[in-house]
Nucleic acid binder design. Structure first.
Lengths: 340, 340
DNA sequence: TTGAAAGCGCTAACAT
DNA sequence: ATGTTAGCGCTTTCAA
């Protein structure tokens, strides 16, 4: 069976508390001799503490959850953007001695269950609708630290780490305006629901405002930002918005689909229409033409998320005010001067 | 504090065992009345069983690990291929009432620790070198069920679920031979170490053998299959192998990099060189030209992996013999007839 | 159909 | 510097 503290204690001829102290690095309470002897036995026998027992006896599980929305029958929809975040989060947690529970959430009510079941010390909410985050109640959350990535919810139970979506869209729109474009399509998921999209919409319009221009509203709303929907949109745009000379899409994967849809219907990018994305996925550099887009520092975002989450766990209080990271416009080949 | 069995029991005026039986669906031991009354209280109070306590008292944790190699300072390198697997695995486990612990493994020795720490019922090894799987010892693994995705290790402690790599490469090479190509570069990570690559190498050569042709060995070996290394390789190939008319890369992401490197050095695909990949990533359809590649049914692979893993957990024995899934050649635009 | 007792492996709080 | 006691919340076994 499993090697336990007691096994080690018996073999060393000490009490289990002494072993526990050694294992937990409580060196102040044990003599150097004993420490060394016990460490040897621990290594020899391959002792690994039981996290369950520890979690039960102590207050902390040292496990945090990564919660991602997922309809019951669907698998986790992990976008390239979220993959990068996921990888970084795991690494940061591992380095800090925490474990990661990855869990799909079919209904907002499952959040509470996920937190309680394993007594999670905290959780990162990835890709949630702000509306769902708003609805999280103290009863469901308890004193668990919650950090929502890319959220603009002001639910005090959570804090956010996000990129400067407003400025990102502003930069993108400025870039297009600078190239002479005036008739620009704004392609995105519904502007309500996800605060990120709303911010980008505001930033986009602000660019027109600061140039004393009026934007002819050209909205194309999609269900979800995928390559497939993008492609459909790309096919429709030339007929739905024949005057448009540029498209701003709120996600690279969407923009790339749009470029393909445009190509399908015989429209050249950037000669006939310019396209700008958002995210700076690796992918955006692999496609032809290479996509002009807004870059976020994803590793930094993830690192900050974990850092703030762990800090709030250690302080035993709900997280601080949200934080916003800088963005940057990456000019590539999918945009060019307007031609009429 | 937390709502416990005892809280429910007190409120219902029964013993905790009765509540436990109700919660665990042990309906045979409780009267219908009591069941209903308890279920109401459980719902009202928002009771969620403590997985730690359960794991400690029972034998099973109902948690399985997804272990992925990751150097200490590196974040999890989750390729698009593995993302798809990861998402599917989480869904399957959730549907079966299991939880998923995601863990990067810096050294093979950490596998045992990962398994023991949370008393995992089983684990999926994703992306491991066969050599490392070979070295797993009964001591480290215990009676935990282990399933290695894409492995050809014959370590009896594990079982494998993988695609038919041999046939995949065979199909790809046949396709190129059918187009008249004879001088074909085989671009891959080192052929030892990862059995998958070795299988693909064998299949590749088999295509020549069955056509009574001899392959002029044109190997390009890379460190890791990434877009960046692919691009470098693509730039080198025309000078290192001036006679080559086609390239078979063992991963789409590599093939896509190669196409770009070829373009960098002014070589047209497929007019001057044909390129074939492996995996059929979404990505392979987004690039220009669209990549001819070998498709594996990733969702099925993941589903099968979980199914077999859970079966072996429930039977309390090490998993059965490995299983191999069919593959399919997807012809797109990156390959064409040889032109001299 | 229901309950009581024991213990899973550990830690916190208090002895010694 | 080391040990003792009392649980954490649950399941298993045995009894009623």
């Amino acid at each position: 069976m499993r090697v336990t503290l007691k096994d080690i204690a018996d073999e060393a001829g000490v009490s289990i508390m002494t072993v526990s102290n050694v294992v937990n690095g409580n060196r102040a309470r044990v003599s150097a001799d004993t420490i060394e002897r016990i460490q040897r036995i621990v290594a020899d026998r391959g002792y690994v503490p039981s996290a369950s027992a520890r979690s039960l006896a102590a207050k902390s599980s040292r496990m945090i959850g990564l919660l991602v929305p997922a309809a019951d029958e669907d698998s986790l929809m992990i976008s390239p953007h979220n993959v990068a975040i996921l990888g970084q989060i795991e690494r940061q947690l591992r380095k800090s001695g925490y474990h990661l529970l990855l869990r799909g959430i079919a209904q907002p009510s499952e959040v509470g269950e996920a937190l309680k079941s394993w007594s999670l010390d905290g959780a990162v909410l990835l890709n949630f609708f702000d509306e769902d985050i708003d609805r999280l109640t103290p009863g469901a959350v308890g004193n668990v630290s919650l950090l929502a990535v890319d959220s603009y919810s002001d639910n005090p139970l959570t804090t956010g780490v996000r990129s400067d979506d407003y400025t990102g869209a502003l930069l993108a729109a400025r870039h297009l305006l600078g190239l002479g474009h005036r008739e620009i399509v704004f392609a995105s998921p519904a502007i309500t629901g996800v605060g990120v999209v709303h911010q980008r919409y505001k930033g986009f319009r602000a660019a027109f405002a600061e140039a004393d221009l009026t934007w002819t509203e050209r909205l194309v709303t999609i269900e979800t930002a995928t390559h497939t929907t993008g492609r459909e949109v790309g096919r429709r745009i030339p007929t739905e918005h024949p005057d448009a000379t540029a498209v701003f899409a709120t996600a690279d994967i969407l923009a790339i689909g749009i470029m393909e849809g445009l190509a399908d219907s015989g429209h050249a990018v950037p000669d006939q229409l310019s396209v700008v994305g958002f995210d700076n996925l690796d992918l955006s550099e692999y496609v032809t033409p290479k996509l002009t887009t807004v870059a976020q520092d994803i590793p930094q975002k993830a690192a900050l998320a974990v850092e703030r989450l762990l800090a709030s766990i250690e302080k035993q209080e709900h997280p601080d005010s949200p934080i916003t990271l800088d963005v940057q416009l990456i000019e590539r080949s999918s945009t060019g001067p307007v031609r009429r």
